[in-house]
Design a protein around this nucleic acid. Structure first.
Lengths: 122, 122
DNA sequence: CTAAGACCTGACACTGACGTCAGATGCAAG
DNA sequence: CTTGCATCTGACGTCAGTGTCAGGTCTTAG
């Protein structure tokens, strides 16, 4: 599959895929003319990458944890595994922050609804 | 209270406070010499702003919803209220994304733990 | 009064994941 | 063959919140 196909299947831009490769998140085989080719598996990989980005991991961090994705059976990934645990915690903290913020918004919404109800009643 | 005091009480940088003012999130009274002065209430306001930033709202969005904070009783805030609801939904969706990402990490962590256990056993 | 530290404005730097453009090449269909 | 679309590399643009520096003024303790 060529880059455009992968992009549309994974729901990202072609630009992003090239960027991922540049950052070491994704590899491609090249045709003699230099065009990138991908296997079907890469679709899932790109989706995972997107998921991690959405969770606030940076390219560099994703690179650091990739050993746990690519070779969980090898021992060379102590740092990667440690990083994985760290990021899990970070995400949990972030979720807590968002829950707090949502509560704050809910309180605001309630207060405003109350005032609006009054105005309507008058 | 002057800007340094507010900064330390609210746990943000002086730079940030000036930026908030520039963006219309915060107002200050000025001493004759031009120094900013704040009331105690502003501490809470800054904390709320920080909370909203942490939830992914931009300065512009915060400006848009501020009428709901400052004058929930007035009717001029239909758009603001609408925006409030929108942002609440956005945050909820973001929380879902984070939960998904955390699940993905948890699966990775489990797989890696399993492999590690095997290695240790040998 | 004086020195140190807080404050002022204005401006440039930075980060990171892309968008976008330019100019060149590859490839499939008519 | 050609036309048109996909792809290539390389480079610059963007956005937003904040760090940081420069050069000047204000305030306060001793």
């Amino acid at each position: 599959m060529r880059i455009g196909e992968l992009a549309s299947q994974a729901g990202v831009s072609v630009r992003s895929l090239r960027y991922y490769e540049e950052q070491g998140l994704l590899t491609s085989t090249r045709s003699p003319s230099g065009q990138r080719h991908y296997t079907d598996d890469e679709v899932e990989r790109v989706r995972l990458i997107q998921c991690l980005y959405a969770a606030g991991l940076s390219s560099r961090t994703i690179v650091e944890v990739l050993p746990c994705v690519d070779s969980p059976s090898e021992r060379n990934s102590d740092e990667a595994f440690e990083r994985l645990l760290q990021e899990r915690e970070r995400i949990s903290r972030h979720i807590d922050e968002l829950l707090q913020a949502r509560d704050a918004l809910d309180r605001l919404i309630d207060v405003n609804r109350a005032h609006r109800a009054q105005l309507t009643a008058r």
